[in-house]
Nucleic acid binder design. Structure first.
Lengths: 339, 339
DNA sequence: CTGAAAGCGCTAACAA
DNA sequence: TTGTTAGCGCTTTCAG
C-alpha cells in the first residue's frame, strides 16, 4: 500500500505538503499539486481512511439497519439511499436485525465502533437500552417505524391514513363485513395501521362489522392461519384488508392454494406494491407506498444536515401518504354481503 | 467517546493491560479481566476500529459490489452473505454499480481506501483497468459473473446447463420453433446462457428452429420490444425462453398487456424464480436458481479462508445447477406448431 | 508557499 | 502478571 510519505520521498518534499496538495489546499502551488497528483496516480495511491479517522474525522460510512433486506421495501430503500449518499461521498453499510433486539444491539455496537458518520434505522420493536444509548451518541434517523426512545428524526408513511383509505374503498363498494389482518400492534406501524382501519369503520353511518387479526407478520404462517380462521367463520367477511407486505404475500398464496375466487367470493386489498402483486389473479388492489421517494428524501436530508459544520441535527418529521391502486381484486359487494 | 486509556486511568493500570484484558489474553489475571470488563461496560466502551486498523489489522468490512440491490437476485445474496459474515465477525458494505464501470471503479476505490477485508463482486461487463489493479491487491471473490481479468475465485450458476434444461423441456413438449430472449453475449453469463440454449437445439434429431434476440436486459424495454418483434413475425415461435430476470419480468408484463394467452398460444419458460412468478397467469414455468445457497457457500468459504493465517487465497470455483420448476405456462405444442 | 513535529487510540515487542 | 515504549498514516498547528 503506497502512503503519502512514499509520494513525498519520490518528490523530495514533505509528507504534509503531499497531504495538502491532495486536499487541494489553496496554499500549495499549482505546480506542486500537479506533480503530486501525477505521482499519486502513478503509484495508485488511495488514502488510508483509518488514519484519517484517527485524526477525528468521522468515517464516510453510513449504517443502514433494517429487519431483512429481502423485503423489497428495504431493498428499495437501500437502493435509493445508496444513490443519495454516494452523491455526498458516503458509503452504505448494511445490517440486518431480523427484528431481534440483540442482533440490533450487536450491529449498532459494530457501527459505533467503526465511527460511522450516521445511522439510518428501522428500529426493532423494543430496542435494547444499550443500543439506545449508543445511538444517542450518533447522528441517526428513524425510518418507517418510530420509537420514542430514539431521536425525533423520522421519515415514514402515514400508516393510519393508508388503512383508512383501504377500508373506505371497500365501504364505498358496499362491503359491510370487513376483516383486517395486520402486524402486531406492539410495533408503532402495526398500531397505526390498526387505528386507521378502525377509524374508517367507525366513521360509517351504516353499521359495519370489523374482524381483526393481528400477529407477527414476518412468519408467513401467521397470515395464512389468520386467513384460514377468517374463512371458516360462520360470519365470514366479504372483504379483507392486509396490514403488512409479508402478510399480504402469505394471504395471496393461501387464497390461491384454497382456490378462493377473487373478487367473486372475496374482495382483497393488499399492503405495499411488490413486483408480482399486479400479476396475482385479477390484479391486486393495493396500497402503493412511496418507499423510494421516502428513502431519497431521507438520504438528501441526511447529507444536507451532515454538510453543515457543525452538523445540524434538529428534529424533523416527514410523513408521506400511501396511494390506493385499484386493480381487479376488489368489486362491489353482492346482495348477500351487503345485507 | 471513552478510550482504553480512560478505563486504564479509572483502574490505575496501564492501557496495554486493558487492551489485553479486553482481548482475553491468557496472560492477564481473571480478576483484572473482570474489573476491566466491569468498567468497560459501565463507561459504554467500544473499541475504535480505526485505531486498531492502523496497527495493521484489516477491517472487518467486506464489500459487496452488485449492479442493483433491488434485483431480488442480489438482495437474496446480500441477505445470505450478511448472515454468514456476521458469524465470522464481518460487516457488509453495499455498493451498487448500475453495471457502469466508472461507478464500479469509484466504489472499489472507496473500499480499498477503507481497507476492507475483502470484496465480493458481481463484476460489470468490462471493469476499468484501475479497478482490476485495485482488486488484485485485495482478497476478492467473483459472484455469478466471471471475468478472466479478476481472481480465479468464483461462485456461480451453471448458466449453460440451465438454458439447455429449459430448452429441452420445450423440445420434449414437442415444440420445434423456439425463441430465446436473453442478455447481451458480451456478459459472460449472457454468452453461457446462449450457448446452453443453442446446445439443446443442436442436439435435437428432428429439425428445430431457433430464433434469438439478445440485448441489454437492465432496461425492461429491450425485453418488451424483443417479444413484440417475435410475435409479429410471420413464423412466430410456439414457445419462448428468457435469459435474465429483468427480461422475464418485461416479457410477462408485455404478454399480459397484449393479452396473449399462455400456454394456449405460447409456452413460456422464465429465468429466475421471483416472488411473483408463480402468481403470473397460469403460474410461470421457470428456472429456479439456488442464489441463497450459492451466497451462503460463498460467505462460508470467504470466512473460512480469511480465518487462516496468513489468509489462504487459492483459486476456487463453485458451480451450482439451476432447477426447472414446471408450472402452468408451458404445455405440449399444438399440431400447428409441432408441424 | 513549504517543512517539522505532535498526536489521534490501539497493539505488540520488549522489559520488568 | 503487568508496564513501557514505539509506531501505524494522516492532519494540523506552529515555524519558517
Amino acid at each position: 500500500m503506497t502512503t503519502a510519505r512514499d509520494i513525498a520521498e519520490r518528490l523530495q518534499i514533505s509528507a504534509s505538503t503531499v497531504g495538502r496538495a491532495l486536499a487541494d489546499d489553496p496554499r500549495i502551488s499549482p505546480t506542486t499539486k500537479q506533480r503530486v497528483a501525477q505521482v499519486a496516480a502513478e503509484l495508485g495511491y488511495v488514502v488510508n481512511r483509518a488514519a484519517r479517522m484517527m485524526r477525528g474525522v468521522s468515517s464516510n460510512l453510513v449504517g443502514l439497519v433494517v429487519p431483512d433486506i429481502r423485503n423489497s421495501f428495504y431493498s428499495t430503500t437501500a437502493h435509493a439511499l445508496s444513490k443519495c449518499l454516494e452523491q455526498g461521498g458516503y458509503q452504505l453499510t448494511l445490517s440486518e436485525t431480523d427484528d431481534d433486539r440483540d442482533t440490533e444491539l450487536r450491529h449498532v455496537r459494530e457501527l459505533s465502533s467503526a465511527s460511522v458518520a450516521g445511522i439510518i434505522i428501522v428500529p426493532s420493536v423494543k430496542p435494547h437500552p444499550d443500543a439506545v444509548r449508543l445511538l444517542a451518541a450518533l447522528p441517526h434517523i428513524q425510518l418507517l417505524r418510530q420509537n420514542p426512545a430514539l431521536a425525533d428524526r423520522w421519515f415514514g408513511i402515514d400508516d393510519a391514513q393508508a388503512l383508512t383509505q383501504a377500508a373506505q374503498h371497500l365501504l364505498q363498494l358496499g362491503h359491510r363485513h370487513i376483516a383486517y389482518i395486520g402486524g402486531s400492534p406492539e410495533l408503532p406501524t402495526g398500531a397505526e395501521r390498526l387505528r386507521g382501519f378502525r377509524a374508517a369503520l367507525a366513521g360509517t353511518p351504516a353499521a359495519a362489522q370489523a374482524i381483526e387479526e393481528t400477529g407477527i407478520p414476518s412468519s408467513g404462517d401467521f397470515g395464512r392461519e389468520a386467513l384460514r380462521r377468517l374463512l371458516e367463520r360462520s360470519d365470514a367477511p366479504s372483504a379483507i384488508v392486509t396490514g403488512s407486505v409479508q402478510i399480504t404475500q402469505a394471504v395471496l398464496d393461501e387464497l390461491l392454494d384454497r382456490g378462493v375466487s377473487v373478487p367473486e367470493q372475496l374482495s382483497v386489498v393488499g399492503f405495499g406494491d411488490e413486483p408480482g402483486f399486479r400479476w396475482w389473479g385479477p390484479g391486486l388492489t393495493t396500497l402503493a407506498l412511496p418507499v423510494s421517494d421516502l428513502a431519497t428524501a431521507c438520504g438528501l436530508w441526511f447529507v444536507h444536515q451532515m454538510m453543515g459544520k457543525p452538523p445540524n441535527l434538529a428534529g424533523y418529521r416527514s410523513i408521506s401518504p400511501a396511494t390506493l391502486v385499484t386493480r381487479g381484486s376488489t368489486r362491489a359487494a353482492g346482495p348477500a354481503s351487503a345485507a
